[in-house]
């Protein structure tokens, strides 16, 4: 594989930035939503795991 340049110019370069930002943002929102709604008892149980032994 030689690093010659395959494309002459980059059209719609913003699609790279937009798609990556959307992916990040959606995952982040989903995570935030989950963390907010998660069952309190389960969270407490998991957070005590290091103390068990």
């Amino acid at each position: 594989m030689k690093f010659i340049n395959y494309l002459e110019k980059i059209t719609d370069v913003d699609i790279y930035a937009l798609s990556s930002f959307s992916i990040f943002f959606v995952v982040f929102l989903a995570m935030g939503f989950w963390a907010w709604k998660a069952d309190k008892k389960m969270i407490e149980e998991i957070s005590r795991l290091p103390l068990e032994n």
Binding site: V27, F28, A35, E44, S47, R48, P50, L51
Partner: peptide, 27 residues
């Protein structure tokens, strides 16, 4: 996240925050 609760003998301040910490950080 393992040894600090161990040494302090108390669970981490916010487990929810640790989840957000993880995903945001690696992204």
């Amino acid at each position: 996240y393992y040894f600090l609760p161990k040494a302090a003998n108390r669970p981490v301040y916010s487990y929810r925050l640790s989840i957000i910490h993880f995903w945001a950080l690696i992204f």
